[in-house]
Amino acid sequence: MSTLTQPTAGNAVINQFMRNLFGRSGILGSLLALQVIGIALSFFGGNGFGTSDGQISINVVDYSANPVIGLTLLWALISPLYLSGRDSLQTDLTFPGSRTIRHTGNVLYLSALVLAGSLVATLAHMASVLFTVISDRPLIMPEGGTAHYASLFAVLTGYCLLLAALSYFAGTLFSVSRIAAFALFALVMILLRVTALNELLAAIIRFAGEGPASMILLICLLISAFLFLAAMAAGSRQEVRA
């Protein structure tokens, strides 16, 4: 007589997390690759200008970690689509778990990567000032010191998590019902009274720039939590036909 296994939800979530870490190394790999590219772009500097009147020559080069930050945000927008798709679900169904456990493991994994990615981007930003330590050239350091970097880390973590949550929700909804995904998108646009892309961008910029860093992080965390829960609810009926 065969013996039935009594699994625990905690173990199943850990297994899902570990499976994502080792079995879907492309997600972590793409983050690392994009950040390395970003760091390389940062190293060469950008937005520079020069002027000269014959006596004095001024060359200003802006060394910043903006490419790393931008590419980290891009990663946060794209990679959850892979994790929430039908192919990933089909693979996950090979192993013990439930849809809720799968989503919980995925959300924890995405959150861990967002934290790591934001930390790397912040460190890259801190290090970017060192790029200008070139002899005989004046250096203008960013103001604020530790508080500045802490704010950057908080805001970046918040935005990355928000983008990841949005993307994960969209990916889940799209794989459950494409019609529902488009209908919801249209509904959101109507509710926000957004009729053009520039209005949407303006709304995002308004949201992005308002309040202190801690408030932005808190708002982002709340919206992300709501979106992840919405993804779990939508994904609880997710199925895949072999």
Partner: peptide
């Protein structure tokens, strides 16, 4: 459907069965 207990005690082997793409067979 959505039962961890049933899932841990059941395995369906089929042609469309898939595994984590980055893992080799031994893994």
């Amino acid at each position: 459907f959505n039962s961890l207990f049933a899932s841990a005690n059941t395995l369906l082997v089929h042609e469309g069965m898939s595994f984590p793409p980055a893992l080799r067979l031994n893994a």
